[in-house]
Design a protein around this nucleic acid. Structure first.
Lengths: 142, 142
DNA sequence: CAACAGTTTAGAATAAATATAATGTATTAT
DNA sequence: ATAATACATTATATTTATTCTAAACTGTTG
């Protein structure tokens, strides 16, 4: 299976041995037709539904964090009670629907490049994220 | 005292009675020469150091949230273990130093207006935040 | 097959944020 | 003012996401 090899490669490059559990996590994350947003809880639920193997919370957390460090996943900055992650690591931004607690992609084409004309001495920019919080538009505004 | 009156006004407009504790919170938040970023824990510590009155965690949380709802404070979207707040509610963005866990303002003038050319039906944009994560620049990059 | 390095897991620990309920204080109507 | 009422404060308990731990497990290597 070609896919499986890719997962083993991703895991190895992240400093992790390719185990059953970790490959299952890869399948869920990287096999999907579309990229998607998820919380750890949701990811565990998807695995439970799809798989005949059990994966513990700790393993999911560890694997997700290793992938983030390596750049195979992205964490989206939000002040929600849980952390949100994205399988789409290409440069793009997000709407966050505060009522539904849902993330929606904003394609790169739909926002001008954010150009920051200021630097901090001794520091470099690692990432730039735009978060546009949205709520229902009831026409009238109190 | 003119300041005190402003605080009472802010509290009333936020639907809160002006009590000793809440006025103390206002003093710390709105009396400062410069705007600043804070976590709840830090705010409580500042109050403890400055004040002869005790303020419980619950009161601080409640008051801060009422002010955010009213627009007197801003919460900054970050995936940190604690929430970060800003007394500067004018339109501006942030660097987040991931090593120091510190926020640094990016003035409005230092970023072009973020223009999102896409809307979500039935929704309106409530806020747009730019977060630029920064790390030490060691010249060499592995 | 023994030894070792790395894994998985359940459950414990941690810590931020929220809820609770008893006590205290400000406001209102009298 | 004073009593009655509505709202506040507080210490403590609860909740929940995340991290930690230590024991059992797996797979690889000599």
């Amino acid at each position: 299976m070609a896919h499986s090899d890719q997962y083993i490669d991703k895991l190895r490059k992240s400093g992790l041995r390719p185990t059953k559990q970790r490959i299952k996590i890869c399948e869920v994350l990287f096999d999907a037709e579309k990229t998607f947003h998820f919380t750890i809880k949701e990811l565990v639920k998807i695995i439970e539904n799809q798989a005949n193997i059990k994966v513990s919370l700790a393993t999911v957390y560890n694997t997700v964090h290793a992938f983030i460090k390596k750049g195979y996943l992205k964490e989206i900055p939000l002040n929600a009670s849980q952390s949100y992650y994205d399988t789409n690591v290409t440069h793009h931004h997000h709407f966050f629907d505060e009522e539904e607690n849902k993330l929606i992609d904003i394609h790169q084409d739909d926002v001008d490049e954010v150009n920051i004309k200021r630097t901090i001495p001794g520091k470099k920019i690692r990432s730039v994220e735009v978060i546009a919080k949205i709520v229902s538009d009831n026409q009238s505004q109190k």
